[in-house]
């Protein structure tokens, strides 16, 4: 019995690690279909990663060890966080009371090192991207934590796998519309943190308008593969949190749970693709308003949940 569980956990882990590039592929495919094109092959992101991993690297003479540490620490922080986030089933590999704060701070650790690596190049483009990244990252923090407060007070737990697991399914009636507001807030946080339209446009070719892409201009080879994979992994992790809140599942067999979650993740990627096709990137000075909106959504949810105004 235990052996079966271990094997299942390993299989799930492998699936979780293999999934992120596919989500990126779904986003790209959706956008292509909207534009009436076929789009690149389904496995293009995997080919890209393979290509990058087998290339050499170029380092500017301005850079130091910080530049090389950036992608590594970022990916390591995300992988550590991945052990705490329930992605496909309702369980995470590890978990303890208060791990939700660790997850949030691991994301922040990754961000710090990516930003420092960008600043290490001494290029004004990358400095600009870094400045925007920390600005919007900071502004999305209150929305994220307010959402977590709603979940924590609904499930009376500070363990992420309980806050968005079957316990949330049991508590969803008591939280009512607050949960919908949290979903809205988390969607905006997801789009901001993973640098997608309407905050950032990953497909643009103008350095002046990009945030994430302009920060990683100087990375190449395996370093860049780490960064690309890390961005996709971050999308998967934040997306899973969003989906677990949007569609809480009751405790049920993993044979139903896991395929359902995979479908939901694909759906989320498609939704992000649709958003990218249907709206333009916001002007930079309008982004704070969007993030303020996310904060207000989450704050309203917190007020509803904490005052118990919903029956």
């Amino acid at each position: 019995m235990i052996l079966v569980r271990v094997i299942a956990a390993i299989l799930e882990g492998v699936l979780v690690l293999a999934l992120p590039p596919m989500l990126m592929s779904i986003v790209v495919k959706t956008k292509a279909w909207f534009a009436g094109r076929t789009g690149p092959p389904w496995f293009q992101p995997y080919y890209d990663l393979h290509k990058l991993l087998n290339k050499g690297a170029v380092y500017s003479r301005t850079t130091t060890w910080v530049f090389r540490a950036g992608p590594i620490v970022n990916l390591a922080a995300l992988l550590t966080a991945a052990t705490l986030v329930p992605v496909l089933s309702s369980h995470s590999v590890f978990g303890f009371a208060g791990d939700v704060i660790l997850v949030a701070y691991l994301f922040a650790l990754g961000r710090l090192f990516i930003v420092l690596a960008a600043l290490d190049t001494g290029s004004s483009f990358e400095g600009m991207g870094a400045s925007r990244e920390v600005t919007f990252g900071t502004m999305s923090e209150p929305a994220l934590f307010l959402s977590l407060i709603v979940l924590a007070s609904a499930t009376k737990s500070l363990q992420l796998s309980e806050m968005i697991g079957p316990q949330l399914f049991a508590a969803r009636g008591a939280v009512g519309p607050a949960l919908l507001l949290v979903v809205g807030a988390l969607l905006i946080v997801l789009l901001t943190e993973t640098c997608r339209v309407p905050v950032d446009d990953p497909a643009t070719h103008l350095e002046l308008t990009m945030i994430h892409e302009v920060m990683v201009l100087d990375h190449s080879g395996p370093d860049f593969a780490y960064i690309t994979y890390g961005a996709a992994l971050k999308f998967l992790l934040l997306g899973s949190i969003l989906l677990h809140v949007a569609f809480p599942h009751p405790a049920q067999s993993p044979w139903i749970d896991v395929p359902l979650r995979v479908i939901e993740l694909a759906g989320l990627a498609a939704v992000v693709g649709v958003i990218e096709c249907s709206m333009a990137r916001l002007r930079l000075n309008r982004v704070p308003l969007l993030l303020a909106g996310a904060t207000v959504l989450a704050a309203l949810a917190a007020v509803l949940a904490l005052t118990g105004s919903v029956t």
Partner: peptide
């Protein structure tokens, strides 16, 4: 990985 790639690490170039 970088070793495998045949030591094509390029240093001492300008930042792009």
């Amino acid at each position: 990985l970088i070793k495998q790639a045949g030591a094509t690490v390029t240093r001492a170039v300008m930042t792009w």
